[in-house]
Design a protein around this nucleic acid. Structure first.
Lengths: 229, 229
DNA sequence: GTCTGGTTCTTGGTATACAATAGCCCAGGA
DNA sequence: TCCTGGGCTATTGTATACCAAGAACCAGAC
């Protein structure tokens, strides 16, 4: 049966050049390995404007935004450069992240619904029998989902937003560290413990476990990651 | 005795138009009462460019930066508007802040020097005899200093940086709430307790007190501040 | 070979013109 | 009087031209 009212497309994609360029550059930067020795870290406004067929203005706006997020730095009369995060900066990000996530865990025990907490457990049902090694890629995705969900369930949008801002810089790093088998196994156990604490509404325990789990990542990076300066 | 080597000024002030405009607008916005009924919330690019005697470009860059910080919002073909934070957003900011500051307190007990912790106590020596009411303005300054110092002493620059980003939006709010006598007195007691916990290197206690102190502010605002929507 | 001085050329900063569109106002008709 | 349609205005988005600063390079002198 056809509708008797005119169906209109709900929303016109609010396409904006600077937005588009921002996303393009953002994806490009976060998906490249900026720590490779031969990585091309310099960006050229004019070259980009030619490649993309647009003027410099929207590119400059996109670059300015990327600069404020800390992905690039623009040095007057030198050029625009993709920034390599130092080991110290990465560790600080994880520290802040731990602060955010532990607060999120706390809030969940106080405010979240039982259904919300239950949804966390579902993320890991397929790994119950220690099949982590077999599906390491899928696990990595679930791992990220788990942490995103924790922040989401806290009910504090800013908490998630702030963490997301940090997360931008972590994609590359995290994908590497998580793929080490041993850590994946331990990580999944940690997650289940956190879920149990949340289910039990044990505020202090959930907070502590969430914090320690994240800080463990920091310790691991400090000890084992050597491609940072 | 005169130096036998040429003394040079260490750094040339890297004056930039967009930087200057950014600061001007930033100061202007944070120091005005944007919650007054008759507050002028609209900004005009061209008007600003005429007033300041420069072109629109650097103004647009400054506005873009302010937008990313959440101080203004620019609606295409409508204009640039100063954003009023909702009560919910303010409360979320304080929640995130609490997360950051409690982590900072934790780190201080683990890493900071005794001298650093001692410096905190000095901030409040002049208020020891309950002279808070008499010097409420000075107290307000010290209060801010205290929280800044906590984040500073944590040794995690990003922690402070992230908090500063939130603090931008709090200036107006905080100045009002702190001036209520009763709260000032309670606040100073809280601070001293936090300092004691830090001095004792009691990690868990310091973390808890720092968190609760900040969350108390949230509770107070939720209960008593009525000029937010 | 090395240092010095200047010249060139790259590159971001700024100004300005033009385009696109959302909102407003007014006229005209029912 | 109210509604509708069109065009006018206000305001940001985008393109482009020009400028200034300084990094890099090169030549010449010692």
């Amino acid at each position: 049966m056809l509708p008797n009212k005119l169906q209109v497309k709900p929303i016109e994609s609010t396409f904006s050049l600077k937005e588009h360029i921002y996303e393009t550059l953002h994806n490009g930067i976060t998906s490249m390995n900026i720590y490779a020795d031969d990585a091309q870290l310099k960006l050229d406004e004019r070259q980009l404007s030619e490649q993309l067929g647009i003027s410099r203005t929207p590119i400059r706006e996109a670059l300015a935004r990327l600069e404020q997020e800390g992905l690039v730095t623009v040095i007057p009369r030198r050029g625009v450069f993709i920034v390599r995060k130092s080991r110290k900066e990465i560790l600080e990000m994880i520290t802040v992240w731990a602060a955010l996530e532990s607060m999120a865990a706390r809030l969940i025990t106080l405010n979240a619904s039982d259904e919300g907490i239950a949804s966390l457990r579902k993320l890991f049902t397929s790994f119950e029998n220690g099949q982590v090694q077999a599906h390491i890629d899928e696990y990595s995705d679930r791992n990220i989902e788990f942490h995103q969900s924790i922040l989401e369930l806290s009910g504090c949008a800013l908490l998630k937003e702030t963490a997301d801002r940090l997360f931008i810089h972590m994609k590359g790093i995290r994908a590497r560290t998580i793929s080490e088998q041993d850590r994946a196994k331990r990580s999944i156990i940690d997650h289940l413990h956190i879920i149990e604490a949340l289910e039990a509404r044990d505020t202090e325990l959930a907070e502590r476990l969430a914090r320690e789990h994240t800080l463990n990542l920091a310790a691991h990076i400090e000890a084992h990651v050597d491609y940072l300066d």
